[in-house]
Design a protein around this nucleic acid. Structure first.
Length: 473
RNA sequence: CGGGAAGUGGCUCAGCUUGGUAGAGCACUUCGCUUGGGACGAAGGGGUCGCAGGUUCAAAUCCUGUCUUCCCGACCA
C-alpha cells in the first residue's frame, strides 16, 4: 500500500478532490487525455448505482436495449438544435481499416439520434406505444477541461428514451423520472439535491424543456446530476416518427429522454468526503462494514468470522481485513476508502466480553457486549449513519443558500462564499447573460417557490420566476 | 483554446543553475519479531529521467517540438 496523504478540504478543495479520488483508489489517469481508468473501488460504487437504478427503471416499465456507438453524420444533422449543441464536442471517425469513409461517423455524445432512427422504423400504430427504453453505455464528448468523474471525455451513463402517443403521458414520464433521480439522491446517496426546470438558455439542445437535479457540493459549487427532458414532437418531426391513432389519423409521437452518469461518484465525494478521505453513505457503499481482528488468537478469528457470516447472511456487506498490517494501518485504510462502519474484535476487549464499533461519519466509538444481536445493532448503526450524512448535507446546503435582491448582493455572495443563490428573475436572456458575467454564475433551475420581492435581481423589472443561481462543475 | 506550473523506480521529491557512472524517504520482496491509530530489525529487487528530434566526445541537465496532469480564464445538457 502506498502512502496516502490528502490535502485538507478547506485549504485547497480541488486538490483535496483529486487526492481523495486517488487515495481511495477510485480511479487513476491513463495515457488518454480526459479518459480515466475506473478502478475496483470506484467501479463497485458505479455497479451499485446501476443495480439500484436499473431495478427502479424496470419497476416503472422500462427495458434495456443497446444502440450503436457510431452515428452517421447525416442522421445527426437532422435535428438542428442538437447538432449545434453538440457539434463542438463530438469526435469523428473518418477511416475504416485503410479506407476513408464515404460519410464520417461521430462517436455518440448522446443517443437521441440513434433511438429516433430506430423509433422511426418501428413505430407504426398507437398499439406499438409506448416504447420505454433505456441503455447503459459509454459516451464521448471532447471536453477541453477534464476532471476525474466530474467531466471526463468518455464516461458511463444511462440514457432512457421513450416514445408515447400523447403529450400528457410523455410529460408525466419526464416528471416521474425526475422523481426517480430525486429519490435516488435523497434516499440512497444522502444528497439533498434540488429539482426544477432549466431556463431556455440552459436546457438540453433540442428539448422543449429540461428538468434537472442540482446537488450542492461542500465548497458551494453546484453539480448537475440527473436530467429529464421533454421533447414533445421536436425529434419525431425531425426523424419522421409517426403513428396511426385510434381515429386512423397519422400523428407525430411524443418523446422524452433522461440520464445520469458516473459524475454522481464525484458528487458523493464532494458532498460527504472529509480530510480523512471518502465517506460513503451505507446504502451506496459496496462494502458496508469492515471487521478488524486485533491479535490472532483463535477466539478473535472465530468471532470475527462468525460476525462476518451473520452479517453477510442478512444482506449486510461486510468483510474481514485479514492482512498482515497493524490495526492502525487498517483503521486508516478503511477510513480513506469510506467504509461506513468498522467493527473491531480484539483480545483486550474480549477479556471484558466487549467489541467496538467505530462510525466513519462521526468517528464515534461504540462499545457493545459480545453477545448482542449483531445484525440488529449493525443495521441500526448503518441507518443512523445514512441519516446523519443526509442531515449534515442538508444543513450545509441550507447554510450555503442565500437570497439576493440585486446584482451587488449577488456579487458579494459569490465573493464571500459561493452556494445556491435564490433570486427573482424577469425571464430575459439578457439578464441571464449579465448575471453569468459575475464569476460565471449560472441559473441552476427555476424553483416553484414564491417570488422574493417580485423584482428581477438584474434589471429590477417585474420578475416571472424565482431561480436558484450558482457556480457549476 | 489563451495565461501559468509541473512531468526523474509504485508514491512524494532531490539532482538540472555551472552537461561527466541515476539518488533519498515511503511503498514492494524474503526472514525474524510484532498487532488497540498508518510498528521494528536485517537482507534484497526495481528507474535511462513523459515522448520525439537537435547540440555535444558526452544530455535527467542545454535547445526545439509534442503529449499528459494541475491551477486560472474561456467553453461546456
Amino acid at each position: 500500500m502506498e502512502n496516502k496523504k490528502i490535502t485538507s478540504r478547506d485549504v485547497d478543495f480541488a486538490k483535496w478532490y483529486t487526492d481523495v479520488v486517488m487515495a481511495a483508489s477510485l480511479a487513476s489517469y491513463t495515457s488518454v487525455k480526459g479518459c480515466i481508468a475506473i478502478e475496483p473501488n470506484g467501479y463497485a460504487i458505479w455497479e451499485k448505482m446501476v443495480s439500484i437504478l436499473d431495478q427502479k427503471f424496470k419497476e416503472l416499465g422500462h427495458t434495456n436495449v443497446q444502440m450503436p456507438l457510431l452515428i452517421p453524420e447525416n442522421l445527426l444533422r437532422k435535428e438542428g438544435e442538437l447538432v449545434e449543441g453538440f457539434a463542438p464536442e463530438v469526435a469523428w471517425v473518418t477511416e475504416g481499416g485503410s479506407n476513408k469513409l464515404e460519410e464520417r461517423h461521430c462517436i455518440r455524445p448522446t443517443s437521441e439520434t440513434m433511438f429516433s432512427d430506430y423509433f422511426q422504423k418501428h413505430v407504426k400504430s398507437y398499439k406499438d406505444l409506448p416504447l420505454l427504453y433505456n441503455q447503459w453505455c459509454n459516451v464521448l464528448r471532447w471536453e477541453k477541461e477534464t476532471r476525474p468523474f466530474l467531466r471526463s471525455r468518455e464516461f458511463l451513463w444511462q440514457e432512457g428514451h421513450t416514445v408515447r402517443a400523447t403529450s400528457d403521458e410523455a410529460e408525466k414520464e419526464v416528471y416521474d423520472m425526475m422523481d426517480v433521480y430525486k429519490w435516488f439522491h435523497h434516499e440512497i446517496l444522502a444528497i439533498p439535491s434540488i429539482t426544477g426546470k432549466k431556463t431556455e438558455k440552459e436546457k438540453f439542445a433540442g428539448a422543449e424543456y429540461t428538468l434537472t437535479n442540482e446537488a450542492l457540493m461542500y465548497n458551494g459549487v453546484s453539480l448537475q446530476a440527473g436530467t429529464s427532458h421533454y421533447f414533445g414532437q421536436k425529434f419525431s418531426r425531425a426523424y419522421d416518427i409517426k403513428f396511426q391513432n385510434k381515429e386512423n389519423k397519422e400523428e407525430y409521437a411524443y418523446q422524452t429522454s433522461w440520464g445520469t452518469t458516473t459524475r454522481m461518484i464525484g458528487g458523493l465525494i464532494m458532498v460527504h468526503g472529509d480530510d480523512k478521505g471518502l465517506v460513503l453513505p451505507p446504502r451506496i457503499a459496496p462494502r458496508q462494514v469492515v471487521i478488524i481482528p486485533i491479535g490472532k488468537t483463535d477466539k478473535v478469528m472465530e468471532l470475527a468470522s462468525k460476525f462476518n457470516k451473520e452479517l453477510n447472511d442478512n444482506n449486510i456487506v461486510s468483510y474481514i481485513d485479514k492482512s498482515e498490517k497493524t490495526p492502525g494501518f487498517k483503521f486508516a485504510e478503511a477510513e480513506v476508502n469510506g467504509i461506513p462502519l468498522r467493527l473491531e474484535v480484539g483480545e483486550r476487549d474480549l477479556e471484558k466480553d466487549n467489541i467496538t464499533f467505530t462510525r466513519r461519519d462521526t468517528s464515534e466509538k461504540i462499545i457493545e457486549n459480545v453477545n448482542i444481536n449483531i445484525v440488529e445493532v449493525t443495521r441500526l448503526l448503518l441507518d443512523k449513519i445514512q441519516n446523519n450524512l443526509y442531515e449534515k448535507a442538508l444543513k450545509r446546503r441550507e447554510e450555503l443558500t442565500f437570497e439576493a435582491h440585486n446584482l451587488d448582493e449577488m456579487k458579494e455572495i459569490l465573493e464571500n462564499h459561493p452556494g445556491f443563490i435564490k433570486a427573482d428573475w424577469c425571464g430575459s436572456e439578457e439578464c441571464e447573460v449579465k448575471i453569468k458575467e459575475l464569476k460565471g454564475c449560472k441559473s441552476r433551475c427555476i424553483t416553484e417557490d414564491k417570488l422574493i420581492d417580485g423584482k428581477c435581481v438584474c434589471c429590477g423589472n417585474d420578475a416571472k420566476h424565482n431561480v436558484i443561481w450558482g457556480l457549476q462543475y
